[in-house]
Structures are given as structure tokens and as C-alpha cells.
Design a protein around this nucleic acid. Structure first.
Lengths: 336, 336
DNA sequence: TTGAAAGCGCTAACAT
DNA sequence: ATGTTAGCGCTTTCAA
């Protein structure tokens, strides 16, 4: 049926473990001559041999596999391409592969759901890409597991990786202050996610450090509400000269509202935000200044941390905070 | 070390295969009494038993696993949440798990790259989420594989699944015609992807069938270019009264351009597009009418097709075309 | 109904 | 350096 090392050994006229050593799979100190190695490789190629992963797992006790758990709800999990790339690229360097699990979209199914990788024994460790509202059944399955686990994008003291939202917000606000702005507002939607409070805190601290008065606006209406709210707000005489928006879903309607009100950006209003993948969306033909979430680095760091935990299962590691990068965009300038 | 069925058998005082049967893993005709079944379950629970996936794979010859291959380049692969949900939910119903592989982001690595699931023997079949520009080394690794494979989002005669772009475009254009529009333009960016040609064809056929003159505009400048181009275009006297835009990256700048020019939408201009996940983006506070790509169904159908191919490896199946759904949005109305 | 034994493909600890 | 052997945890077949 399928080609095994036995077949290769027979065809090449060498021993089984010579084949194993020649293919570089065995850890043992067996040496084989270059000629044998070459012949084995040749035969393996001819026969279309592929090592059987399950057999190797059985023999070594290592799965060579890491799982990632995500939610179907966009606000609870990050499934952007750069994030996945960072994870995959880093796993590749350790010759690990990725098993991806997602909670069911349907709520009734979700309550009962436990992914296969938690019901069976098949991974070396796992990544949690799930910031809140984890179903109780699932949480219980987690906690009874012995495999190491790394949390991503949550505020936990150890075994977690997240962006450094506080510093990013402080620095971004600092840049506006340096440009000469003093009426700077922070705008956000309501959310329990730690990053809202952290970005706000970074903004506030930067304002207070410069002797300025922080002022925030929250909105529960979503993007739709921002346009109407933004237009009204920006019409008033004491409107801010600069806005720090929590994310692009907040920033874009504000940009739109400003332009519709006839304000020039950045002439009349400077705008800065977080989390915009600048290449992706240019609805208004303008690139918004942003602290860009380092998704690729996030994925990379999470995997590196997980690998350390797999190698030293009994240790705990402090949370890692990943720095943002700055993209000046086209919406930053001095106040009039 | 880890708990095995042997441990359960000893503790529960029953035979090994009684344990296997009681846990519902074995296919054999062994019957166990309810009492035994209950005691075995109890002991398994107490001991924290988990079946070893690799051992089962070894014994059965089935991996219970499907791989998906994607590209780090957004235009070549779809990694949206609904798509992944459709895939995961459907895999769950077959008790399959998903191994996800992604080509390296770095070009130098990419040329050599062959994912682990193609270098080892570890899956029952795989999904290709890669519409073009597949590196030659990778393509070669594909072609030498015996596992069944399903292509997604490409125009192939068999063993593939894709949205029915032609019908969606024809129907969408038909809706505008029914509203009374006659000057309807199709706008798109340049791309080799089959869907650009198909949507354009659907649009053209609908126009011709109504005795109207089709007219298309292409743009190589990306979203940024559309704003300037769109404003100029919409200022002219013979501007269209309705626009069918290839996707949301085309439609949104046009909406913006129209509003900046003082046109009312849909009073002065109707706008319709494809592929907008309407909940996600409301930059302008307006929901654009759209034929919504059925990503969830795409994932579901792809997995169903793959499962059929796994069960009948020697058969080929015709390509499946998935229907779009229509979201009327707020940008459709009769011409003035 | 229950028990014993073989075997899946590989690795690693032994022998020689 | 090379060959032999046991064993990973499970399923399945064959005997009792």
C-alpha cells in the first residue's frame, strides 16, 4: 500500500536503521557512509516514500504539533493574515505544524463544543486566540489539560503575549503635542477589552505630563453613529484640533465626517489612530496616521514563548509586550 | 506517564477491548453491558484518560485530518472568518480536524517551501486556498501526492468550489435595470482573477438583454486613484445613474467621491457591489447594496466535496458554484 | 460475552 | 559500523 522504510531497506540492500539514519530521522549516533546515504535517498525518491507522521509520534512521544483556538466572533479573535504569517513562519523554524480549531458559529452548538485537540491526545501545546466570553464547557476542558498554553492579546501577568497599547498611545499623543496641539480628544467605542482602557490611559498620561486637559468621547452606536455624531461635534467652536481614535472603525467615520464638514485634514484637523493596516483601506484616498499593531511580531513571540514552555513545561514566563510601529500617514500636521 | 486504556482496564477490572467498546471507539461487534460501560466511563473520567490520536491513526490507517493551504498574500487566499467558520463547522460534523499551512511571507523562503503535510504522511485530504502564482516547488509537491484535493475559489471544471459570480452580476445589474436605470457602469480594478471577467460578463449580458449599452471602467491606481478619478468622472454631464462596482475596495471610494461631489445616494446615484461584509465597515455611515459572497457556504461545500473525494478517491466531481445572497443596503433607488 | 495475539511504521536501546 | 529487538497505544482478528 504505502511505502515504508522496510521497502527502502530491501530495495537499497541496507538495514532498516541505516535507512532511518540516512534519511536523517533518527537521533541515534549511527553513522552511514555518504554512498549509502545517497543510494537511500535515491530509492526513497523513486518509491515516493513519505515518513508516517503517526508512527514517528508513537515512537518519540512528541507530536510536532501546536494548536490554535479561535472564536468565530471577530471581536474576540484575531485572524488577520500578518498574525497568521508570524505564527506559521515561526512554527516552521521549529518544524512544528499548526492545528487550527474554531468554536462553532452556531450558539447552541457552541455551548457544548470541545475541539478535538482537547478531547484527544495529539498536540504538544496550544495558543489561545480568544480574549473573552469563553464558554464554560470549553474553559473546563482547557483547565484540565496538561499541555502548555500561551494566551494572546489578553492582559495576564504570565504566559501571555500582547501589544504594548499603553506606550503606543502615550507616544502617539506625544507626537501630536510636539506638533503644537493642545485640544486633543480621545475617541473610542465601548468595550471591555483591556486595550481600550490602556490606550486611554496612555493618552491621558501624555496629556497630563504636558499640562494639558485630557478629554474622551465614547460612543455606543458603532461606526454608523460616528458619522452623525462626528459631524455635529466637529461643527462646534471648541472642537479639538487633533483626534486620537481608538481604532480604524472609529477613525474612518471621523475622517469622513471632517471632510464632509469641509474641514481640511490635516490643515484643520489632525487625526491619528491604531490598528489600521494602511495598505488595505483607503476609502477616502487618504492614509490615516497610525500606530500599527505588530501582528506579525505578535504571532512570532507567541510561538517562541510556547516553544519555551514546551521545552520547560513546569516554568511560567512573564507576559511579553510587543511594541507598535509608527506610520506617519497623511493626516498629521501642526494646528492652524 | 500518560493514561492508557490498559490503565482503565486494570482499574475497572474489565478487558482491554471491553474498554475500547465501552468508550465507543471500536468498530467491532463487541457488546458491553450498560453497567460496564458506565464504570469504564467513570474510571476514564477519574484518571483523565484521553485517547492517543497517533495510536488510533496507526491502527486504523485514517488520519481524521484535513489540511488547508493558504498564501500570505491577501489577494491569493481568502482567510475571512465566515469562510473559516464554514470549513470548521462542517469538518466538525465529520469529526475531522484542520491542519492549516501557510506559505512563508518571505519570498526567499517561499521558493523552497513545502509544508510539512506534504513532506510527511499525515492527512486524508487537503483544500487549496490559493488562486494563482503557486511556487513551482510547491506545485510539484502537490502533483506527486495521492491524497484527494479540492480547489477553492478558482475556475476549474472539476474538484473545485467557487462563487457563482456570473449569475450574481447578471442579477444585480437586472435589479438596477428594473428600477429604471439605463446608464449603468461597471467599474473594476485590473486583475487576472476569473471573477473580474465573470462579473463583467454577467453585467454585460444583463445590459444587452435589456437593449442597453454596457460600459466599463478599469483602473490600475487602486483605491487611492478611485477617489480622484471618481470625482472627475461623476462631475461630467453624461455620468451614469447607477454603478456596479467589482468589490468594496472599488465601491467605497466611489461612494465617497459621490458624496464629496454633493451627489445624493441613492437619489442622484445608485451604487451596488459584491463582497461587502456589510456589518464590518460603514465608514460613510451608509450600507452599500451588495451581492454578498457566500463564504460560509463556500467553506461548507468545499469540505463536503473533499469528504466525498476521500470516501471515493478514484472519482472526480464537477465544480460546484455557490449562489450569492442579496443585501439591499441603502444605496439603491430609481433614477431621478 | 470475554481473552489472547498480531500488527500498524517508526525510534531507540541493545546486542554483535 | 551494522543487525536485532522491544515497544509506543490502539484496533481488529481469531480462539476460547
Amino acid at each position: 500500500m504505502t511505502v515504508t522504510m522496510k521497502d527502502i531497506a530491501r530495495r537499497a540492500g541496507v538495514s532498516r536503521q541505516a535507512v532511518s539514519a540516512a534519511l536523517g530521522n533518527s537521533q541515534s549516533s549511527i553513522r552511514v557512509s555518504d554512498e549509502t546515504r545517497w543510494r537511500v535517498a535515491q530509492v526513497a525518491q523513486d518509491l515516493g516514500y513519505l515518513p508516517n507522521s503517526a508512527a514517528r509520534v508513537m515512537a518519540t512521544g512528541k507530536f510536532g504539533c501546536v494548536a490554535m483556538l479561535s472564536s468565530p466572533l471577530g471581536r474576540l479573535s484575531t485572524v488577520t493574515t500578518p498574525f497568521l504569517c508570524g505564527i506559521h513562519d515561526t512554527l516552521n523554524t521549529f518544524d512544528l505544524h499548526l492545528l487550527q480549531a474554531m468554536i462553532p458559529a452556531d450558539e447552541a452548538h457552541r455551548a457544548q463544543f470541545v475541539p478535538k485537540f482537547l478531547r484527544e491526545y495529539m498536540i504538544d501545546g496550544f495558543l489561545v486566540n480568544y480574549v473573552a466570553e469563553i464558554p464554560p464547557t470549553l474553559k473546563a476542558a482547557f483547565d484540565s489539560r496538561v499541555q502548555p498554553c500561551v494566551w494572546m492579546n489578553v492582559d495576564m501577568p504570565c504566559d501571555a503575549v500582547r501589544p504594548d497599547d499603553y506606550t503606543a498611545a502615550r507616544d502617539l499623543t506625544g507626537k501630536l503635542i510636539e506638533l503644537g496641539h493642545s485640544r486633543i480628544s480621545f475617541v473610542a467605542h465601548h468595550s471591555d477589552h483591556y486595550s481600550v482602557a490602556m490606550r486611554r490611559q496612555g493618552y491621558s498620561d501624555a496629556m497630563l505630563a504636558a499640562g494639558l486637559e485630557p478629554g474622551s468621547i465614547y460612543n455606543v452606536l458603532g461606526s454608523r453613529g460616528w458619522v452623525a455624531l462626528g459631524r455635529e461635534w466637529l461643527r462646534s467652536d471648541d472642537r479639538p484640533t487633533a483626534v486620537v481614535a481608538y481604532d480604524s472603525f472609529t477613525a474612518k467615520p471621523i475622517l469622513f465626517a471632517a471632510l464632509m464638514e469641509g474641514l481640511r485634514v490635516p490643515g484643520d484637523l489632525s487625526l491619528a489612530t491604531f490598528d489600521v493596516d494602511t495598505a488595505e483601506d483607503m476609502t477616502a484616498g487618504v492614509k490615516i496616521a497610525a500606530m500599527v499593531v505588530p501582528w506579525y511580531s505578535m504571532g512570532k513571540s507567541a510561538v517562541e514563548l510556547l516553544v519555551e514552555k514546551i521545552e520547560q513545561p513546569d516554568l511560567s514566563f512573564p507576559c511579553r509586550h510587543i511594541s507598535f510601529t509608527f506610520d506617519a500617514g497623511e493626516t498629521l500636521g501642526p494646528p492652524r
